[in-house]
Amino acid sequence: MAGLIVRRLFQLIPLLLGISFIVFISLHLAPGDPASMIGGPTATREDLASIREDLGLNDPLFTQYFRYISGVVQGDLGYSYQTKQSVTEAIMIRFPNTFNLAIASIIVATVIGVGAGMISAIKQNTSLDALSTIGALAGISIPNFWLGSVLILLFAVNWQWFPAAGVTQPPWTLQGMKELILPAITLGTGSAALIARMTRSAVLEVIRQDYIRTARAKGVKEKSVILLHCMRNAMIPVITVIGLNFGFLLGGTIITEQVFAINGVGRLMIQAIANRDYTMVQGAVLLVATLFVLVNLLVDILYALIDPRIRYE
C-alpha cells in the first residue's frame, strides 16, 4: 500500500512538468501582447520594447520556461505582469474560497447522486426510477449560470433564506454554510446527475452478481445486502466519477464564482486571461491541474482500500 502511494507520487513529477510546459507554451502562442496591456493605449513603441525587455519576453521561449520552472519548484510562481503582486500570494488568498466551494459542491453531488442512483437501481423500472432519470437528464442539461440565477432569484431575493452573493465567513460557521449552499447546489447539480447515472448502472451490475445471492442465502438483512455487499463493490466505478468530477468542479468554479461574486481562483483567472497576465494564468492553471492530478491519486488509493485485488497488482 505504502509502495503504491510512493510509486504514484514519483509518477506525478514528469506529469506536472508536462502540464506546466503545455500551459506555458499555449499561453505564449495565444494572440495578444502583455506589454501593450501593461503600457496601455498611449504607450510608444520604445515603451513597449522596454516593458518586454523588463519582463524577459525577448528571451528564447526555453530560457523563459526554464526561468519560470526553476521558480516554481521553489514555490515562487512569479509576479503578476499587471499588479506586480506575487502570484503565489494572490492565489493563496483566493484559493480557500474556491476549494471550499468545490468541496461543498462535491458533497452535494455525491449525496444526491449516490442516493438517487441507488434508489433508482433498487426500484428499477418504477416511477421513482423514471423520476430520477428525468432529474439526472435535467441536471446535466441545465447550464450553471442559469441555475445559479434562478436559485438567487428564488431563495435569496424572493424568500431571503440564503444570501445572494459573496463569501465572508468560514464554511464551518452557520453563516458560512448558508453562503455556500446556493453556489454548491449550482455547481454540484451537473456532477450529481453524472454520479447518479453511474451509481445506477454500477448497482444494477453488482446486484446481479452471485455473491449478492450468497449474501441473501446467508439470511443477511436486505439493508446490509444493499449498503454493505452491493455498495462496496458498486462504489469502485462511482469513485472514479466522483474524483474526475471534483477535478472538473475545481475548474468549473469560474462561472459559479462569477454568478455568486465569490472572490476565488476562478474569477482571478478570468481577469488574468483578459489582461494577458501570463504568470497569473500559469499559476492558477498549474494549481488546478496539480489538484486534479492529486485527486486522481487519492481515487487510486481509495480503489486499493475498497478492492483488495488491486493492492496486490
Binding site: T214, R216, E222, N233, P308
Partner: peptide
C-alpha cells in the same frame, strides 16, 4: 420477507455452482 430471511442460512442453507464468483471479492 423477514420470516423467510430468518430461515435462510439458519435452518436451510445453500451452496452454489460457481465458487469463484459466489464469495464477495471485497470482504
Amino acid at each position: 420477507r423477514e420470516e423467510i430471511r430468518q430461515i435462510r442460512g439458519n435452518d436451510i442453507s445453500m451452496i452454489f455452482q460457481e465458487p469463484m464468483t459466489s464469495l464477495n471479492p471485497v470482504f
